[in-house]
Design a protein around this nucleic acid. Sequence first.
RNA 1: GCGGGCGUGGCGGAAUCGGCAGACGCGCUGGACUUAGGAUCCAGUGGGAGACUAUCCCUUGGAGGUUCAAAUCCUCUCGCCCGCACCA
Length: 828
Amino acid sequence: MKGYDPQTIEPKWQRRWAAEKSDRASVDLSRPKYYVLEMFPYPSGKLHMGHMRVYSIGDVLARFLRMRGYNVIHPMGWDAFGLPAENAAISNRVSPDEWTEKSVEQMKRQQQRLGVSYDWDKEINTSSPDYYRWTQWFFLLMYERGLAYRKRAAVNWCPHCRTVLANEQVEAGLCWRCESEVEHREREQWFFRITDYAERLLNDLSTLEDWPERVQVMQQNWIGRSEGTEISFQIKDFPEESLPVFTTRADTLFGVTYMVLAPEHPLLPRLVAGTKREKEVMEFAARIRRESEIERTSEDSPKVGLFTGRYALNPLSGEAVPILVGNYVIMTYGTGAVMGVPAHDERDYLFARSHNLPVKAVIRPPAAEAGEEGDSFELPYTGEGLMINSGEFNGLGSTEGAAAITKKLQEQGCGRFKITYRLRDWLISRQRYWGAPIPVIYCDRCGTVPVPESDLPVLLPPAADLSGDRVPPLSHYESFVHTTCPICGGEARRETDTMDTFICSSWYFLRYTSPQLQDFPFDREAADYWMPVDQYIGGIEHAVLHLLYARFFTKVLYDASLVRVEEPFSRLLAQGMVYKDGAKMSKSKGNVVSPDEIVERYGADTGRLFILFAAPPEKDLDWNDQGVEGCHRFLKRVWRLVEEWEKEPRGGERGAGVLGAAEIELQRALHGTIKKVTVDIEERFNFNTAISAVMELVNAIYDYRRGIAGEKQDRVLMEEVFKTLTVLLAPFAPHLAEEAWQALGCRGSVHKQPWPDYDPAALAVEEVEIVIQVNGKVRGRMTVPAGAGEEMIMERACEQQRIAELLEGKSVLRRIVVPDKLINIVIR
RNA sequence: GCGGGCGUGGCGGAAUCGGCAGACGCGCUGGACUUAGGAUCCAGUGGGAGACUAUCCCUUGGAGGUUCAAAUCCUCUCGCCCGCACCA
C-alpha cells in the first residue's frame, strides 16, 4: 500500500465485486426489502454528469441500506427504443439496433467505472424482443380492457421528427425533443384512455406524501380538474341540433350575449351550409386552423371572431344570441364551444368590445366592494357576488345561484353538473421505425383485429434504409405489412405505427423483478415482494411525462389484478441539475466535464464524493474543479491515516480501558459522527452534511494524533476509530473504503459490514459550554456541569466580571434557561 | 394571471423543534518543511470601530411585527428560478 492510487484500486475492486456478484438481489421473504431505482437512461453512448449524479445518489442509498440489513434491489437497464437512436443510426449509416448495442456497451462501461452497486444480472433493454413482446402484451391488455382505441383526430405533428406527439410531449407549442414548432394534422391514431383514470391519478397524489410538492402540483395542473355545468343551447332554425358548452360560472347564464365555436367545431359547417356567409366563415375557420399552436394560443395574439349568421337560444331566458366562430376557443377542452359572458369574464369582455357585442351585468359585487348603492361597478367583474337581472334567481349568491341554475337546467333536460379535465387521452402511435410495433392487424372482412398473444412478439423487420421520406417507415416493408387475418385467415395488413417509448418505460420497474422470465411480463410473486419502488430518483423533466404514464399503467395493472400496488413509486427524489459557470453543462457552452475525465484524473470515489458533497441532492449543483480537488485531498488525507497506522506496531497493552480526556473526546466525536451520518442519510437525504461530518471526524483524528505522542496513543481506540471511519465512508467512496478495510487487516468486504450503532453513553458529556445572554445578546460563555440547574447557572454567570458589570444597578426581570445551551438574563 | 420554490461571507453551502449565524469544503493571507511546490502540515479568514488587548456595533434581499430570544413564525415588499396558462 503506497500512496492513494485510485487508478489501481478502483478497477481491482470493481472486478472483484463483479466476479463475486456481490450486489445480486433475490427474493427473501424473511428480510425487509428495499427497492432503489434510478430512472434508466436512454443509451446515447455518452455518460454525462447528470447521470453520474443520479447514480451516485442511488448508490449511497443502496449501499447504506444493505449495511442496514435490507434486502436491496438496485437494477439498471436501457430505455433503448426511440427517436434519438433512429436519428443517430440514420446519420451514422448503421442500423438502430447496431447503434444501440454499441452505445449500451460504451455507456455500461462508463457506468461500471463509477463503481455503482448494480445487480447486472437484472439488466434489461426495452428494444430487445424479449422485452418488447411484453410491451405489446400490455397494449393488448389495454385493448381488451377498452383502454386502447383508434380514432381520427387532429393531432400534434412534429415535422422534424416526422411523427405525432402526445399532448404531454408538446411544450408551449414546441416538440419536447427537438423544439420544432408542432403542426396540427388529421390522422387516424391509437390512444390510451388515460382520461378514464384522471380522477384516481389526481386523488391518489395525496397518498404520495414523500413526493416533492412541486411534482404533485405539476401533475395536478396537468390533470386540470374543473367542476362546472354543461349547458345545452338550442339553435334557432335548427331544432334538431343543440350546442353544449361547459362553464364554471352557471350563475352568469343570464349574462350570455353571444356564443363562440372553435374553428374545428363539427357543427360549424352545418350551420353555415348554403348560406351567403358560408364561404367567408369557412375560410376564416380554415385560416385559424392553419395557424400554429403558438400563434393561436399565445395570450397577446388578438381575439378574433366572425358571426356565423346563426343564433342560439338561452335555455332559461329564451333570449337569442349570435353564434360566432373565434380563435380563442379550443376544440380540445370542454365542448369546443363557450358561452360569452363579457360582463364577468376578462377574455369575453375584450372579445365583446372589439366585436360590438353587448355587455350585460348579472352579478353585483358584494356591497362592500360595490359602494353604497351597488348599482355602478366596473366591468368586467369576475368575482362572486349577488345575481341580478336573472329573473327568479335574483338575489342569490354566485355559488348557490350556480347550483340552482344547474338544477333548473337539469329539470328541463338541457344541463347537468359536469367535471372537466384538461388531461387528454394519451396518443401513443408514432410514425417511426425504432419502437415496439403496435400489435394490430387490419382485415377488410374482420376489421381491426388484435394480434393473438401467442403470435407475440410482432418483430421489427431488420432495418433497411430509414432515411427516406415515407411515413411511417414500416409501411414500406412489404413483408411486414402483408399478413393474414388471425380470424378469417384472409389477406390483411399490419398496423405500421410503433408505440411511444413512454410505454416501454411505464412498466420497466416491474420487469426488473424477474428480467429473464419467458412466459409472462413479470413474476407476480417477485413483483409483489419487491414493489413498490421504495425510492425513485430522477430528473424533474419527467414530473408529468414518465411519472404520470407509469402511475396510469400501474393502476391499470392493479385493476387487472396483476399487481398489488396502486402506485409504483413510494418516494420520489427529483435531483437537481448540474451546472458549471452559471449554465447547464452543454456542448454549445463548452462547459462540459465528463465523468470519464474525472474518473481518469481523480478516480470515481473523488467524483462521487464531490457530487454528493457540493449540494443536497434535490438542489442544482455547481460544478467546481477546485471543489473536486478538495474532495480528492480529503480522500488522500484519509488514506494517509490508514497508511501511517499500517506502519505502526500492532496490538499492545495500551488502551486497556482507562481513557484519558483526549480519548474520551475522540470517542465522543466518533459516536457523534455515526449518529449524524446515519440520520443524514436515512432521514434527511442530506449527503452533503453527512460527508462534512465525516470530514470533521477525520480532522478530529488528526488533532488527536498531533496532540498525543505516538507511543501514548490509545491503539485499541484508534483501531475502532479507523474501522468505523472506513465503514462510514463506504457508501460514498466504496473503493477506497474497501481497500482501507483490507489494509486495516479486516476480513470480508467493508460493504458487508453492519452499519454501526452509536453508543449514547459515549455522547454523554460531563461539562457543557453555555452561552450567557443579557437581554438577548451574547455577553459571555462559561463551562458548567451538564444538566446544571438554573440557580447554579445564574450564580456562575454572575461570577463573570463582565456579566456582573452589566447587571450592576439593574433589576433582573426574567431568567430564561435552555438546559445545557444558554441562559438569557432579562434586565431593566 | 394562477401555482410552487429560492434569496445566508469572495464562492458552494451549514444551522434538523424559535436558543451561540456562517459547520464542512473551496478560495484567500501568513508561516513551517523543501532545490522546488500545483505535495504536506500549522495559524488566520463575515463587515466595521477600537490601545488591533479588552470590548462594542452591524450582518441571513428590504421594511415592519410577534417573542426574553427570529435565517427560522406573521404582514407587506423587492429580486430570481421553475411549472401551467385565451382551460371557458
